[in-house]
Design a binder for these strands. Structure first.
Lengths: 130, 130
DNA sequence: GCTAGTGGTTCCAGTCACTGGAAGGTCAAG
DNA sequence: CTTGACCTTCCAGTGACTGGAACCACTAGC
C-alpha cells in the first residue's frame, strides 16, 4: 500500500502521514524503489491517530493512547481519566464561549443598527465595563 | 503601568504582551527609560484579546472584534452585523464542542475504569464508529 | 523507445501564536 | 554599592502541520 492509498483510506493528507513518520508515530517499511509500504497495522494506527486527533487529543496524548492500546496489560482507568480530563477541558471552553457570547449578545441588542456611529455599550466596553 | 503589572492584571504573560505589540495589536507609549507604559485602555484591550483568544478566536478575528468598539467612524449597523456574525460562529463552536463532549462522555461512561484492559474508548478509536 | 501524466521522494521554508533564553540596562531597598 | 526584581532586544524553538521546488518511479498510449 502506497502513501496515496493510505491517505485515501484514512482521510489524512499524505503530507501529514509523512510528518507522522518524521516524529516516529507510524514508521512504514520501504519498497526497493524507496516508496513507503504501508501494511494493515500501519493504516490502523493512522486511523486511530486521525480519530484521536479529531477528538482533540494532542500528538503526545495520541502517543500515550497508542501505547495504552498496544499494551494488552494496560488499565482502562488510565484511558478513562484521560477522557474525563478532556471533558473538563471542553466544559471550560464551552463556558468561556458562553460568556463571550453573552457579551456580544448584549452588545448587539443595544446597538441601534442604524447608520450612526453611536453605540453606548461599545463605549462602555472601551472604558472597562465588561 | 509597566508590563509586569499588566501581565498580572490581564493574566497574559509579558512575552505575549510584547508579541501583541510586535503585531500591532496593542502599542503602548514608552517611558524615557524605554519601558512600555500601559494605560487603562491598553489593559482593557489586552483583557478582551485574552478572553477572545482563550475561546479559539484567531488574532485576526480579535482584530476584527476590537474594531467593534475601537472604530469611532463605523456605522452601528456594521457593529451589529459583525457581532451577530460572531455570535453565529460562537454558536457553531459551542455545538461542535458539545458533540465532541458527548462522544467522549458516552465512551467514558461505558468504560469501567478498572484495571482490566477492555476499554470502549480505545476500541471506538480503533474501529472508527465515529 | 518516447512521452505524458500521475504519484512518489527529499529538503527547506513558512505558518500561527506564542515561548524560552541569553545578554544586558534600570530601579528601589538595605 | 550591591542585590534582586524587573525591564529591554534579539534570536531560536515549539506544535502540528502545509506549501513548494526539484527530482525519481511507474504506467499507458503511440
Amino acid at each position: 500500500m502506497n502513501i496515496g492509498d493510505v491517505a485515501r483510506s484514512t482521510g489524512l493528507p499524505a503530507k501529514t502521514i509523512r510528518y507522522y513518520e518524521d516524529i516516529d508515530l507510524v514508521t512504514p517499511a520501504r519498497a526497493s524503489n524507496g516508496y513507503r509500504e504501508y501494511v494493515e497495522q500501519d493504516v490502523h494506527r493512522l486511523s486511530f491517530i486521525q480519530r484521536a486527533r479529531s477528538l482533540g487529543f494532542s500528538i503526545d496524548e495520541c502517543r500515550l493512547l497508542l501505547s495504552l492500546y498496544n499494551d494488552k496489560q494496560r488499565a482502562s482507568s488510565d484511558v478513562k481519566s484521560l477522557a474525563l480530563a478532556k471533558i473538563d477541558e471542553i466544559d471550560r471552553k464551552i463556558e468561556e464561549l458562553g460568556s463571550l457570547r453573552s457579551t456580544l449578545k448584549t452588545l448587539a441588542d443595544h446597538c441601534h443598527g442604524n447608520s450612526r456611529p453611536d453605540c453606548p455599550i461599545l463605549e462602555e466596553m472601551a472604558k472597562g465595563v465588561s
